[in-house]
Amino acid sequence: MTHEFSLAHLTTLSCTPPELVDIAARAGYDYVSIRMTPVTAEEEHYQLVTDRKLMKETKARLADTGILVLDVELIRLDPLTEPESCLGFLEAGAELGAKGVIAQLPDPDRKRATDRFARLCDLAAPFNLTINLEFPSWTQTPDLKAAVDVLRAVDKDNAGVLVDTLHFDRSRSSLELLRQLPGSWFNFIHLCDAPAKHPDSVEGVIHTARADRYYPGEGGIDIKQILDSVPTVPFSLEIPNDRRIKRYGRLEYARRALEASRRFFADRDNCHNDQKSRILMAVNQ
């Protein structure tokens, strides 16, 4: 089976968007996933929404390399943020040719958060953008069930759920629930691995998420069961690891991340084929 891969910006966050595109092309990716708003005060802010020079350069690199934009991030609808304030973000994402937007709902008022998510979906629809709700365990939408409640309440055609294998594991979300969801809700998946043992603090969970993820198959997350529960969609490799970036450099690290992910899927597909062969042999005996 052929799989498509995107280089998530968090994996090499020190790159500008044009540099991210170049690295993705040289390493062999199909897409990039671009961060257009900072998540922390320490992050570099790549202002594609307002910086026309940066936008023009990024689009030129995309055209030159053939790399596509899978998604842009991040819209965080906190208590002070109205969806209408994100219109410029949506316009910039559409200009880049993005397929989707990542959103989070760090708002304790669930009714307000759900209403704003619905309005964001409506604003994104004319741009042919999906809005994909992510559920980091430290936010007010802390697990798959909370995200599903929002999607069911808004009932929008362009609303989706973003499964990040790390967040799914750390939130102890339900595989049974995951298997019950409509296939149309899944537009892409964040793929990574991490130690099986959960950190003892929120700070530890966030540190792993931002700076110490592993390549698929290296850690203790049951990635295979997660992926067996969802449709086949593109995989955005969000695998930040400060130690390895320092050791290998950004390009080589991105290349190794893709190589490890392809190897993981080759092993998984071979395992599935072996299981099918054993079943057929048993039936024919």
Rank of each mutant, 00 (worst) to 15 (best):
A8G: 12
T208E: 12
A266H: 15
E238P: 01
V230H: 04
L258A: 11
D267K: 15
L258P: 01
D155Q: 12
L129Y: 03
D269Y: 11
L144A: 05
P126F: 08
H198N: 09
G160W: 02
D109N: 15
G183F: 03
T139F: 10
A124P: 01
H198V: 13
L96W: 03
R250K: 13
P231T: 08
D64I: 07
S173P: 00
C15T: 14
D267R: 15
T130C: 08
R172F: 07
I239A: 06
T232G: 04
S137V: 13
P182F: 05
Q47D: 14
R210E: 06
S173F: 09
Q285P: 00
T40S: 14
D200V: 09
T40N: 11
Q225F: 00
K276E: 13
I226T: 10
P126S: 07
L123R: 07
R255V: 03
V154S: 05
L178T: 11
P240G: 07
L80I: 06
G28M: 07
L181H: 10
A118K: 09
C271M: 15
Q104V: 02
A209N: 04
R76K: 13
S33Y: 06
R255A: 10
Y215G: 00
A63F: 05
C121P: 00
E84V: 12
A159L: 04
A25C: 11
R256K: 15
A41N: 03
A113S: 06
F235M: 14
D267C: 08
K56Y: 12
R112V: 09
G220C: 00
G93R: 03
R61E: 08
R116T: 09
N132W: 02
R244G: 00
E134T: 10
A8H: 09
D122K: 15
A41I: 08
F135W: 03
Y215Q: 11
K111R: 13
F188A: 08
N132L: 10
F127D: 02
F188Y: 15
V230N: 03
T165H: 04
L181D: 05
A211T: 09
I226H: 11
D267S: 12
L10A: 12
Y29Q: 08
R116Q: 14
G217P: 01
R35I: 07
K56W: 05
L77H: 11
H272T: 14
H45N: 06
P231N: 09
V283M: 07
S184P: 01
R26H: 06
V154A: 06
T208D: 06
A194F: 05
L7N: 03
A146D: 04
F235K: 06
N158F: 03
P216I: 13
A27L: 08
D115Q: 15
L70H: 11
D51Q: 13
G204E: 03
V205S: 13
L90H: 05
E73T: 14
G249N: 06
S14V: 11
